Simulated scan of single mutants.
Amino acid sequence: MRQTSPSRSSIAAILALLLPLVLLVGCGGDEAIREDDRSAEELYSEAKDALNARMYEEAIGLYRGLTIRYPFGRHAEQALLDMAYAQYKARKPEAAISSLDRFLRTYPTHPNVDYAWYLKGLVNYDQTMGFLREMFPGTAADRDQQAAQQSFRDFQELIRRFPDSRYVADARQRMVFLRNIMAEYEVTVARYYQRRGAHVAALNRCRYVIENYPGAPATVDALQIMARAYDRMEMTELAADTRRVLELNYPDRIQEEERKSLLDRLWPFD
């Protein structure tokens, strides 16, 4: 027996019946929040207690409830910032970044806006650490490299806007580490190209390191890769020139860098 497909009008009627139910379910959570009779002070205190107890999901829900019920109250500003921190600790980086961007747009003159920039840098920094763990065995992802670049820009913005902030010293150290990671990433890709005989591509990556990350430990590796690439391309004069640059500029660092572990090279602080 041949089955007939439903008509467009019947489909539209079904959707019209379902839509109010979907909206009701979606709005149910917010409606319950609005009916909560706790004051802003009570919600904020409970959220803070949950945050201090590392009950991050509960804290997020309480902070969210506070910002919905009292969007213009005196606690709303700090609640949004605290919620971003709870989301960061709960390993919800996208939600944390969204909350921080909203905070920075809505409260640009808040006394803790420097902390918001610092926390935004930390969120991306933690994603970069995931990239670093991937890079140790020799694999690297462009997505995670972008997190390193964004973290660097966030810390850079903190320093530009608030040079006297108490978070600047830590941000500067993290920026050095991030710069070294980004340089090391480019060298990792250059090695990948060189193993496959793509010497021009390897050279381009190494030049990028030398031009954009001067002083990074990876510049020694970049010059060594360049010298080998010139050898294999039978450009003997350029290979010799590159090795002379190594000997003149990094006579001590070549052996020193070989002795250090990768993590020591990337994080040159005690």
Results as ranks from 00 to 15, higher is better:
86 A>F: 08
86 A>C: 08
124 N>C: 03
172 R>L: 11
157 E>M: 12
85 Y>G: 01
102 R>A: 14
115 Y>S: 06
198 A>H: 09
198 A>M: 11
48 K>V: 11
254 I>L: 12
226 M>Q: 14
147 A>W: 01
226 M>G: 02
117 W>L: 13
145 Q>L: 15
164 D>T: 14
60 I>N: 06
42 E>L: 11
185 Y>W: 13
121 G>N: 01
246 L>C: 07
2 R>T: 11
250 Y>D: 05
60 I>K: 03
145 Q>R: 14
165 S>E: 06
101 D>Q: 14
9 S>M: 09
76 A>C: 10
247 E>L: 07
15 L>A: 15
169 A>C: 01
151 S>T: 00
5 S>W: 13
155 F>P: 11
150 Q>G: 00
132 L>P: 02
153 R>D: 10
207 R>Q: 14
209 V>S: 07
175 M>G: 02
255 Q>A: 15
65 G>P: 06
83 M>G: 13
149 Q>M: 08
95 A>F: 09
144 D>W: 10
87 Q>R: 14
167 Y>C: 00
191 R>Q: 12
121 G>K: 00
125 Y>P: 09
47 A>R: 01
164 D>E: 13
92 K>P: 09
126 D>P: 01
140 A>W: 07
21 L>N: 04
187 V>C: 04
2 R>G: 06
26 G>D: 05
236 T>K: 10
92 K>V: 07
268 P>V: 00
209 V>Q: 04
246 L>N: 04
113 V>F: 07
162 F>G: 04
